Each structure stands twice: as structure tokens, then as C-alpha cells.
Amino acid sequence: MPSVFRPCIDLHNGAVKQIVGGSLDTDNLRTNFVSEKPSSYYAELYRQHDLRGGHVIKLGPGNDDAAKAALQAWPNGLQVGGGINVKNAQEWLDAGAEKVIVTSYLFPGAKFDEDRLRRLAEKVGKDRLVVDVSCRRRENRWIVAMDRWQVMTDMEVNADSLERLAQYCSEFLVHAADVEGLCKGIDEELVQKLGEWTPIPTTYAGGAKSADDLELVERLSGGKVDLTYGSALDIFGGSQVKFDDLVEYNKSALARSE
């Protein structure tokens, strides 16, 4: 399969926003875009163009209603993440999520707890679980970051960790938090490594600034990694990438794969 565009809806204080990832939950939060439209508008837009595998991310508290509105606009068409745990995961699937996305719950005290992941997979099923291994770069390594990308965990993103996690989930979501929201280009080295390392479908987010980045991601990852656009996209107030161009790209990519 070729790499394709995967859409997103980032929620902060109940509104659809685009935020500079590294500033999240700090005193100098930097916001690129705040939408006047509700989350359901974007969900309906993605549904209209059959853009599957998109993720709704709740960045902190106060976003449950907006997340549920998006899921109701496209039942079983979107994934949801942010505060997901073994107690509420099924509730979000019942609310219309195709899959649930989990990060922080797996790292109590910033240390990976495989038993938590095993129990969550048993509860909802591996096929309905996405593990978010969003990370920050430390020299030539990438370390999983949790709690809105502010707390570093004890897990490095590499072939061994992804193989271990893939036993329990059907997809990975990887935000490159250091370049998220900056529109200055993707972390090419990380995308290439993900193509080498990941044994399951993976979506990368962070820094995409041109429609050509889709071809770049496909080349770097061998088509094993999909790409999310945020702040550069015209539907999020950006000027560098047209949503309609990405829709057309997906159509041609899927036609190539048939």
C-alpha cells in the first residue's frame, strides 16, 4: 500500500485547534489556529471524502463533548485519543470511535507497564487499539513522551519496542513533538526509521508543510507510514497545503494500489 493522507481533529478546551506541540501544557502555549467551526464539521468533511483512519485527539480536559460530537458525525470512521484507559475505552468505542488511542495510561510514573497494555487489549480487542508512541528527540534517539508531550518515559522508539507493542495493537500513531505545529518539515530520519522498524500500519504527524511531503514519506518509509497534516493545511488556517489536493492524492494513491 502507498502512503496516504490521514486527517486529524485536535481538541483543546473544547475547540478545534492547531498547537505547537512542544509548547503544550507549558506557560507559553503557542496556538497556530482556533476554528470557529465545531468538531462535527471536520468529521463530516472527512466522511464526505471517505478519508478513513483519522484521529480525534483530546489535548487535556474539557474536550469530551466535542470529541463525541465528531464521533457522532461519522460513527466508526474516526479514532479517538486523550485520557483513554481500561475503564473508559469501551465507552468511547460505544460512542462511535472506530478505535481508541492510548499513551499516558501505559506509563504510570513514566515507566512502561506491559500488563496495563495487555489488559486494555483484552478488554477492547487488539484490532480496535492504537498505541500512540509520540516522542521527542534526544541526540540520535527518540523517547516516548506522555502527558501532552511534556514528560519523558523510559521507552525508546526502536525496532524492539515497536515489535513488543505490536503484539497488543493494530496501529501506531507517532507525533514528532519537537516539530509538531512548526510547518518546517517532517523529521525525515524518524520517518525512515519507522519504515524500517514498524511491523503494523503507522501514521506519522509533525512538521508536514507541502503536499509533496506525502511522496517523501512514501519514499522514506517504503509506503509503510501514512502522514497527517495540521497547521499547514488550509482547512486549519494554513496557506501551504490545500485539503483538496490531499483528497486527490489519496484517490490516485489508492487507485495505484488496486
Rank of each mutant, 00 (worst) to 15 (best):
P2I: 03
Q18I: 02
I19Q: 06
G22S: 14
G22V: 11
S23D: 08
L24A: 09
S40C: 05
Y41L: 01
Y41E: 06
E44M: 09
L45G: 04
Y46E: 05
H49Y: 13
G53C: 03
V56W: 07
G62F: 03
N63D: 01
D64A: 10
D65E: 15
A66R: 09
P75T: 06
Q79D: 08
A89W: 04
L93W: 03
G96T: 11
V102T: 04
L106A: 07
G109Q: 09
R116L: 14
R116K: 15
V131R: 10
R136D: 10
R138E: 15
R141C: 06
M146E: 14
M152L: 14
D154G: 03
E156S: 03
E156R: 02
A166F: 06
C169M: 01
C169V: 03
D178T: 04
D178R: 04
L182F: 00
E188W: 00
E189F: 01
L190P: 13
V191M: 14
Q192A: 15
K193C: 09
W197C: 11
I200T: 11
A205G: 14
K209N: 15
D213C: 02
V217P: 04
R219K: 13
D226I: 08
G237H: 12
G238S: 01
Q240D: 10
D244L: 09
D244C: 02
L246T: 00
V247I: 08
E248D: 12
N250A: 07
K251A: 14
